[in-house]
């Protein structure tokens, strides 16, 4: 047990050191990623200004005031900082295609566990470096926020963020592991990316979706990658709805943990070592 913990600790430490090499470019890149939000601020200001009726402060789109809307976009940046897994699925696919994956099959090390720790390390370093730019942007934009939510809401927010990290990881890992069968999964990944951008709430609060589409997106796992934590923070999801939302998120996390395990073991049995 101790030996195993030591192994995992080493993996975590090395991955963190590797990630810290380009910290300058990294911080600048993080700050630049907020630039598109500037356009969103003006776009939504224009949209709200064109809405007739009551006074400016009272106008809402799907229950979001102008300030809520901007706060929402800023908060999805936090959700995405947890849930986004750049190059995870495509990395797994590449490892399977070029045969690198066999190092996990012959060594006494669990592939998904290794990748998870590697991600945790990268995310930790990311937060370490990105906390500066994030604090700066959120401080500048503090006027858009209604204020700090109460304790339980904040706790639910943090809980949903941690689960959104796990969901993002196991969902993308599952997709990547499909390349045991297809070898080339880039188009599958693109479709996933497309849908996730639209239905995760990254593009707009999914409350805006009408009718059946609105009901469906509240049940599929994608909403947890961006929408859900942000909506929780803004107090859009409360009480029983919040409890149900967190439960559903937990169920989806467990579902994808199990799915990735099953697909990995089935795939490994089928694996024939291309490019070795």
């Amino acid at each position: 047990m101790i030996a195993r913990t030591a192994t995992w600790w080493t993996i975590l430490r090395i991955s963190m050191e590797e990630r810290l090499v380009y910290r300058g470019e990294f911080a600048l890149g993080t700050l630049m990623r907020f630039l598109p939000i500037v356009t969103q601020v003006f776009l939504w200001a224009a949209v709200f200004s064109a809405m007739g009726g009551s006074s400016h402060g009272r106008r809402t789109v799907a229950g979001y005031s102008y300030h809520d809307m901007i706060a929402y976009y800023l908060l999805t940046m936090i959700s995405r900082a947890f849930s986004s897994m750049p190059a995870l699925a495509s990395g797994i696919a590449r490892d399977i295609r070029d045969g690198t994956v066999k190092k996990y099959l012959v060594q006494p090390i669990d592939m998904l566990g290794f990748l998870l720790l590697y991600r945790v390390a990268h995310k930790l370093v990311y937060y370490l470096v990105a906390v500066g730019p994030f604090l700066l942007v959120f401080y500048v934009c503090r006027g858009y926020f209604p204020g700090w939510p109460d304790g339980p809401t904040l706790l639910a927010f943090l809980l949903s963020l941690v689960m959104s990290f796990l969901l993002g990881f196991f969902l993308e890992a599952t997709l990547g592991l499909f390349s045991f069968w297809f070898l080339e999964v880039s188009s599958l990944l693109f479709i996933y990316m497309l849908f996730s951008f639209f239905f995760s709430g990254h593009m707009f609060p999914i409350d805006m979706l009408p009718g059946v589409a609105g009901t469906i997106v509240k049940h599929i796992p994608l909403q947890y990658l961006a929408y859900f934590p942000a909506a929780v923070f803004l107090g859009k999801v409360r009480g029983a709805e919040l409890a149900w939302g967190l439960t559903l998120q937990f169920v989806w996390v467990v579902f994808f943990i199990v799915a990735s395990r099953i697909i990995f073991s089935l795939g490994a049995r089928r694996y024939s070592g291309f490019g070795a």
């Binding site: 224009a46 949209v47 200004s49 064109a50 809405m51 007739g52 789109v61 799907a62 707009f204």
Partner: peptide, 24 residues
């Protein structure tokens, strides 16, 4: 399809507002 998703987003916006910006 990326373009169509964007158009879907704009169509959604126009469900709530008549124009992008008052009097523009």
């Amino acid at each position: 399809s990326w373009v169509f998703l964007n158009l879907a987003f704009y169509t959604l916006i126009f469900r709530y507002a008549p124009a992008i910006g008052a009097n523009t």
